[in-house]
Design a protein around this nucleic acid. Sequence first.
DNA 1: AGTCCACAGGAAGGGCAGGCGA
DNA 2: TCGCCTGCCCTTCCTGTGGACT
Length: 409
Amino acid sequence: MQQKTLISFSNGDTKEIFKKYLSEKSIFKNKKVLTHSYIPKKIFHRDKEITQISSILAPALKYYQPSNLFIYGSVGTGKTICVKQVLNDLNLIAMENKIDIKTIYINCKLKKVADTEYRLLAQLLNEIGVSVPDTGLPTDVLYRKFFDEIDKKRQVVIIVLDEIDALVKKVGDEFLYNFTRINSELERANVSLVGITNNLVFSNELDARVKSSLGEEEIIFHPYNAVQLRDILEDRAKEAFYLGVVSKGIINKCAALAAQEHGDARRALDLLRVAGEIAERSGKDKITEEDVDLADQKIDLDHIIESVRSLPRQSQAVLYSVMKLTEEGFEKILTGDVFDRYKDLCKRSGLRVLTQRRISDLIGELDMLGIINAKVISKGRYGRTREISLNITQDILDYVKKIISPIFD
DNA sequence: AGTCCACAGGAAGGGCAGGCGA
DNA sequence: TCGCCTGCCCTTCCTGTGGACT
């Protein structure tokens, strides 16, 4: 006998919202086109770079080891997308011609995926079908397993490490050295490394020994200008929205705003997508300039609020101390001031008091996240310290306060 | 020129949790 | 069960530093 399921709505408003949503026609034809992970059919204004990457990786088709490659360029300049497309094409050609090429793409910034040497190796092993525990084994055992597994047959393995600077910053460059030595240990397979980084001076920060054995080829991706961003947006908008939803003016505005932000194509796509969402939510069938302005603010706000929400309690306490000092009109907030205020806060709220050394690191992390500015200054006879200020506007600050105040007050 | 301040920030290591293999 | 390994968060100890002051 079939069981009957009882359906009832808990709240009349919810029901109405869902009903209304169902009855409305979306302005989006395919929203996925505007996400960062989408690979478009044509990549605009990157022909030269794609040709360069392809020629460097081409020797893999004859089982030679392609040169290690380093790709530099700031956020949203198309590095990842170009590499992914070249790998796609390479895999296709390899398959057609029955050539054994294995390409592995790993984003080193993804938490719990490849943010330590162990996890990177575990992830690589996972990609070639060997499962290892999340922790517990010595790192050299993982290296051995990886080397042995790929050397079982004649093949070329191309490992792409995106945001490689994040991993090097965390665990040092020793692992890169290990990978450069890998080919001398392999009999049948060849391995080549492609590193992608936002840090334009990344190679300068590497150990000379690593640099000499690694940096064989380099490609730099320059930021897009407003005209180039416009071409990219126009192409994506055609697929993402129904006809007439986006005007040329809107595309130009998104392109111009993103071009101001260091020619970031991701930002341009985000602007268009969020503006579309805002327009749709307010029942419009066209995106207006006002929607783009709102989207611009919303993206910043969402980013900061998400960062603050996910901060550990101790970092939130440090941020709250900075906020309180700012509110009280402190002209120049120094590390010592923050630490004193933080101690008071801990006493009142029952939080464990960490050392000043640790708080100094937490201040550095908040600075990295862009929530505060912390500049090292010297006050001569009165010491060397950091001058700290909030890096968020008043309206965002109000939102942030709503999140943190209830925890400590 | 030397002193001194208030930290910055590197290095080493402790303690805990989670996990493996013998 | 025990020894060993890693990750993570943290402390302790230490050296380095820019520039006002003497």
